[in-house]
Simulated scan of single mutants.
Amino acid sequence: MSDIKLPVEVQKELKQISTVAGYLWQREWAERNAGNISMNLTSFFNKEDLKGIGTERPFEFPKGAAGFVLFITGTGCYLRDLVDNLESVSCILLINDDATGYSIVWGGKRENFGPTCELISHSSIHLFNSIHNPENLAVVHTHPLELICMSHHELFDNEEELNRQIWMMCPEVKVFVPKGIHCTPYALSSTAALADVTIEAFKTRNVSLWEKHGATSTAPDVMKAWDFLDVANKGAKMLMMCWAAGFKPAGLSNEQLIELEQFT
């Protein structure tokens, strides 16, 4: 199953995924089996070469995802294991022509392996991206500590003000997360409802902050998706540090934030 020769471009993307998984673990953003990563690799493969590889498993995907080739992490697997055991805890799968099932064409070597329970969310986001933002191939979901704390704060009910206060902490946050954070209302994990609210978030924002859960980003590659989360969380962390020290930060003015838009 994992004997197929991966294109060089895919090998490079998998190396980046391993690197980012290490970053997430070091940050304490991926406790136990928390978080998942996926990437739309369809453009890197000749799908005819993949047909007939692996046993087909039933799964109801969004119809438009038929024929997609996706990298995705496994259910119950630990992101930290992506650093050294990528083929055991993740896979590349081919969605069938009816979007009613998939075959694992690479990886998934762990006993009783299955794709993440967030498969419906990831495949739905990749379908949305393929139509509206085809340059965005990667999706990263993780548990950034300070952003999750912000989702419990009253600012979560005022998305514009939450973004203003996070942006004002330093110029880089405004420049490198220019569309900001979406305050995505709570939805149960592994459901179509969570997929729907996340897609709504990516219509306007760089980061979807899942209420009382975690954060998700999408970008052309996994490293850029990590950067959105890393920089956004830095703004939230600095804001909370000021609050913890007992003062309200002066912050960049609205005029200064507008001035920075030339660099976004």
Rank of each mutant, 00 (worst) to 15 (best):
S2Q: 02
I4L: 15
L6Y: 09
V10N: 03
K12A: 04
K12P: 00
E13S: 11
L14K: 12
Q16G: 14
I17E: 13
I17F: 09
S18P: 05
V20P: 07
G22W: 05
Y23R: 05
L24T: 06
L24A: 13
R27H: 08
E31I: 10
R32S: 02
N33L: 04
N33T: 12
D49K: 06
K51W: 10
P62S: 06
P62E: 11
K63G: 12
K63C: 08
G64S: 01
A66V: 03
G67K: 03
L70I: 09
F71E: 04
I72K: 03
I72M: 14
T75F: 12
V83T: 01
V83F: 00
D84N: 15
E87G: 00
E87F: 00
L93S: 06
D97F: 11
D97P: 07
D98A: 14
G101R: 09
G107D: 01
G108A: 13
K109L: 04
R110V: 00
E111C: 02
N112Y: 14
I120C: 05
S124C: 01
H126R: 04
H126M: 02
N133C: 11
N136T: 06
V139L: 04
H141N: 13
L145W: 11
L145A: 10
E146V: 00
H152L: 13
H153I: 02
L155P: 08
L155E: 10
F156C: 09
N163C: 03
Q165P: 02
Q165E: 12
P171S: 08
P171I: 04
V177Q: 06
H182L: 08
P185H: 03
L188R: 13
T191A: 14
L194D: 02
L194Y: 03
A201M: 06
F202K: 09
T204H: 14
N206G: 12
L209T: 01
L209S: 00
W210G: 01
A219N: 09
M223Q: 12
K224H: 01
D227G: 05
V231G: 06
L239I: 00
M241S: 06
A244Y: 07
G246A: 07
E255T: 14
L257H: 04
Q262E: 05
F263W: 11
